[in-house]
C-alpha cells in the first residue's frame, strides 16, 4: 500500500518546483505505471518515495502501518527500505562480488530475517524466477535477462509491501523484456504487494493495472 499526498519538490536554485501538490495511491496487489517525458521528474518522484531524496512538503505513507517516509531521518528511511520496499532497476545492479544466492539474501540480512529462513526463501525465489540451481554462480556468467531475474528475486525475497521499478526492461531485448515483465507482475500480484513502475514503454504501461502520467502541471 502506497499513499502520496500533496507532495512537492523543488531542486536547489531552481526557479519553479519540479512538481507540487501530487497525490495518488496504489492499493495492495495493484501495479501502477508512471509515464511521462524525460526530465519531468519521474525518477525524482521515485527517489522521494524510496527516501533517497527528500521531498519539500507532503506525505508518502508506505505499508500496512502507513509510515510517512518524509518524516523519517536517514537511518529510519534506510530501515524502512530494508523492511518494506523492493527495487528493480534498469541497470540490474547485481553485486558482481557476491554469488547469485548471496545477492538475493542481502535484503534478508538487512531486514533481520532469521537466518534459518534464508536458504529456503532464496531457493524458492530462484525457482519462481526460473533460475533453479543458479545460486552458486557469479553474476559475470549470467545474461542480461538472467541478471534482471536475479534482481526481481532480490526485490521480492523479503516480502516487501511496495515494489519500485525503474525501467525494469529498458536494457533487455523485446522477447526477454516480455518474459521478465510477466514474471515481475506475476510475482508482485502473488505477494499482494503494491508496485509503481516507471517506464517509457507503452507496452509495459499497458500491462499494468493503471497508468499515471506525470506532466509539468502534475499528474494526469
Amino acid at each position: 500500500m502506497l499513499t502520496v499526498a500533496d507532495l512537492s519538490k523543488r531542486h536547489a536554485r531552481a526557479s519553479r518546483p519540479l512538481f507540487s501538490g501530487l497525490g495518488f495511491a496504489v492499493a495492495a496487489g495493484e501495479i501502477v505505471a508512471l509515464v511521462g517525458e524525460s526530465g519531468v521528474g519521474k525518477s525524482t518522484l521515485l527517489n522521494c518515495i524510496a527516501g533517497l531524496e527528500t521531498a519539500g512538503s507532503g506525505t508518502i505513507r508506505i505499508g500496512p502501518q502507513a509510515t510517512d517516509i518524509v518524516r523519517l531521518d536517514e537511518a529510519a528511511r534506510a530501515a524502512l527500505r530494508a523492511s518494506s520496499i523492493g527495487f528493480v532497476f534498469q541497470a540490474f545492479h547485481v553485486l558482481p562480488t557476491l554469488t547469485v544466492a548471496q545477492n538475493i539474501r542481502v535484503p534478508l540480512l538487512l531486514g533481520g530475517v532469521p537466518a534459518g529462513e534464508h536458504a529456503p526463501r532464496t531457493r524458492l525465489l530462484l525457482e519462481r524466477v526460473g533460475l533453479p540451481g543458479f545460486g552458486d554462480r557469479w553474476p559475470a556468467s549470467l545474461s542480461g535477462g538472467e541478471l534482471q531475474r536475479v534482481a526481481i528475486a532480490r526485490a521480492l525475497v523479503h516480502r516487501p509491501s511496495l515494489i519500485l521499478a525503474d525501467e525494469p526492461t529498458g536494457n533487455l531485448d523485446p522477447r526477454t523484456a516480455g518474459e521478465v515483465l510477466s514474471l515481475l507482475l506475476e510475482r508482485v500480484r502473488e505477494q499482494q504487494a503494491s508496485a509503481l513502475v516507471v517506464t517509457h514503454s507503452q507496452h509495459v504501461a499497458q500491462c499494468c493495472d493503471r497508468i499515471l502520467t506525470l506532466t509539468p502541471d502534475g499528474l494526469a
Partner: peptide, 15 residues
C-alpha cells in the same frame, strides 16, 4: 560506489 549506493538503497544505513 555503485555497489555501496545499491546497498544503501536496499536499506544499509549510512552509519
Amino acid at each position: 560506489s555503485t555497489q555501496f549506493a545499491l546497498l544503501g538503497v536496499l536499506g544499509l544505513s549510512p552509519r
